[in-house]
Design a protein around this nucleic acid. Sequence first.
DNA 1: TAAAATTTATGAAACGTTTCATAAATATAG
DNA 2: CTATATTTATGAAACGTTTCATAAATTTTA
Lengths: 342, 342
Amino acid sequence: MARKTIKHVAERASVSIGTVSKVLNGDPTVKARLREQVLAACGELEYRPNQVAASLRRQHSKSIGILVPDVSNTFYAELVGLIEDCVTKSGYSTIITFGGENPEKMQGRIRSLMDRDVDGAIISPSFNGSELLIPENGNSFPIVVVDRISAQDSFPTVATDNVGATRAGTDYLLSIGHRNIAMVSNSPEIYNSFERIEGYKARMAEAGVEPDLVIVGMSEADAESGVTKLLQRSNPPSAIFTADHLITKGAVRSLQKNGVRMPHDISLLAFDDVDWLSLVEPGISAIRQPTGQLAETAWYQLQQVIQGNSNGNTKSRLPADLVVRGSTASATIKNLKATGTQ
Amino acid sequence: MARKTIKHVAERASVSIGTVSKVLNGDPTVKARLREQVLAACGELEYRPNQVAASLRRQHSKSIGILVPDVSNTFYAELVGLIEDCVTKSGYSTIITFGGENPEKMQGRIRSLMDRDVDGAIISPSFNGSELLIPENGNSFPIVVVDRISAQDSFPTVATDNVGATRAGTDYLLSIGHRNIAMVSNSPEIYNSFERIEGYKARMAEAGVEPDLVIVGMSEADAESGVTKLLQRSNPPSAIFTADHLITKGAVRSLQKNGVRMPHDISLLAFDDVDWLSLVEPGISAIRQPTGQLAETAWYQLQQVIQGNSNGNTKSRLPADLVVRGSTASATIKNLKATGTQ
DNA sequence: TAAAATTTATGAAACGTTTCATAAATATAG
DNA sequence: CTATATTTATGAAACGTTTCATAAATTTTA
């Protein structure tokens, strides 16, 4: 059975197409009687406006794109869900897409979004230089970057206050007596990592202790072997601060394989509070990013850009929380034990 | 700067609009010289065809919808990612959407998909009776149901062989000596749960031992308290089989809080092999659903329906794997220990 | 080389809406 | 009751493609 069109409705309501369109769009210049006829006809015919026709004519679609690298990453999964919530509540619909870690793929996806006349997009680019994503003639396409910002983004950005978060995390570790604190991070070429490293270094410097930075590759296995090397040093750290969720996985695996116990042998503090952190024993202390606020702010900013009342480069920074669980404990315990076993 | 249209290209290539369209769609009836002119013009203008105009005219969009309850569920996150992969490789694009656990919301989403002229959808409905999702006049909208099938689906379905999987899991637990095996599941009103329970019951019956079924609510907390009650019985089971990922979470939490150790005090076998199962200690044995095959098969089936060469109710069942880790062990160990401590 | 057959290019209609200028209907004023 | 102002409804154009009937160009045949 072919789809019903506005034409059928018009016929059935004995009214012009234009009138139908008006009532459907809430135009007040149509009299009650006709309005009712039209509404009745719509109901009887189960009419639903064809959005692609409407988009074509209007030149916008009341929908936005959401582009993240990969939804099997818990952080993005949560973020995407929350953004979708906000957006849908405003009567927009969403087209969610994954860009992976590959610039071309990402570029392809974002263009395909534009080709669908979405009104804008919230993106987490998987690499720096997000402006390169947009074709020359699409300068004015509304975009806000969330989470994966870079130093020179020319779009509004919304991100966690990475520096503040790792500074606070480091501060916490220092405050419970640790001095020998290693941070395990991805390459600082990833701007998030860069910032997280900065916060850590800054606080370490203030405390007058040497930073101990271990850079690892992008895979869980890289993180695991990096941490293993750390543990095998003659003087391993008393605390490890992992800079993201994947690294935390690798670290936990390494600790397990090497029979190193938290928090007695070593304290572990994770960046990104994903679900399983509270399921291992002991629970792992973590920096929790404000995902909900990230989502809300990103959508708010995008709306500003779409409506044209944005200077186009607002930079939002949202504060993170520290969640203390059992994996971090006073350094003395560890030291006692360490001395005992050495 | 306004978007370039096919008209601009035609002008620049000194050629008609129709010709441009032809070369863009690979029509062979256009001579090499013109083809090159057109291609050149496209390049120079950075032309990208407007998909909404194309969709409107063609009456299909070379895109499909993917609808799952919620991507913060690891299983769906993985599934969605894999489906997107397959689909994109075939030159289709995807619109991903979340239906939540609410029928109306879900219905809204699927209609919005239809309103966008997607050519079909792969859905995991969050409740039974998926045919109710489709409006009367949309009978012929191509749909395949993945994972969340129900008894009376009138669409092609693709799912894990739940019965076989829990049968195999139960068999494994029996084979290592357990007789007192409890299954903790959601209500059998969820068809997946129903099937998983069936497999368990069938194998238990074959072995001539009493099944021990605990039905819990849909939340992690429900699962946790269900398991806690189980543990507090005077004669608790020697093995627990959790029927999905959320229940497993609740179970692990309950075991932890009650100081019950795996596998010595109790063996745990989980349905759904999510990432953290290998990060807790000991690693949790699990039934691993064939997500990759689920994705591929669903897309294959949907293509069949779209192309009209499907009878419309193929039911695919894919076998699951058993992954043995440290949480399950021979019942004797537990029994020894149990007797010792009682 | 003219006519017929074939290949290749064109222009206009169509997809289902929204929008805008204008026609029709109704209300207000003189 | 006519003329004018105002409100409400209409019809056609437009959005950017694809497609199809036909025109133009080219090739083949006689």
